[in-house]
């Protein structure tokens, strides 16, 4: 499967890198696996109830596995210069830090002062909305005259 390109004089001292040819059967196998996993995502999300968070985590797990297949084999990272993988790793780390710490903040606001957890309740949204309309930032619409929590007739 591996066909190293050795035409560039003296350049082939890097070990395995990008000039890596993958057989089409292998790529096709990955595609089939990805399609099966897509089906699995749809099936588990619609037919298997694991609780609110359970379904989310399962979907994320399958998606991560699919992403790993794409990154590793379609994008050749498995055979590529290891620093490219390191760059990706640090990127993911930064993303996880970003989302994680923000979620820690939002998820822990009730711990000292329960009032702070009420940040974005419908009540608060309603007040903010009324103020915004009073300031002329938002156009009032028919929802505002009716009670927002009741679904309008359709």
């Amino acid at each position: 499967m591996s066909a190293h390109d050795t035409q560039h004089g003296g350049a082939d001292d890097h070990g395995s890198h990008g000039h890596h040819v993958v057989s089409w059967q292998f790529l096709f196998g990955i595609l089939v696996l990805l399609l099966i996993l897509t089906g699995l995502t749809v099936y588990t999300a619609l037919e298997v109830y694991l609780g609110d968070t359970g379904n989310l985590l399962l979907a994320l797990f399958i998606a991560s596995f699919k992403a790993a297949l794409v990154v590793g084999f379609f994008m050749h990272l498995h055979w590529d210069n290891k620093f490219n993988a390191v760059a990706l790793l640090f990127c993911l780390l930064a993303g996880v830090t970003f989302i994680g710490f923000t979620a820690i903040d939002i998820g822990s606001r009730h711990m000292v002062d329960p009032k702070r957890a009420e940040m974005m309740t419908p009540e608060v949204v309603k007040q903010a909305r009324e103020r915004a309309i009073a300031e002329g930032r938002l156009e009032p619409d028919n929802d505002d005259s009716a009670n927002q929590n009741e679904s309008p007739p359709e």
């Binding site: 999300a45 379904n55 794409v70």
Partner: peptide, 14 residues
């Protein structure tokens, strides 16, 4: 493609 792999389940399914 990668981004869509995540967007699809998060938005459309769960």
């Amino acid at each position: 493609d990668l981004i869509w792999i995540f967007l699809f389940p998060l938005l459309y399914l769960v």
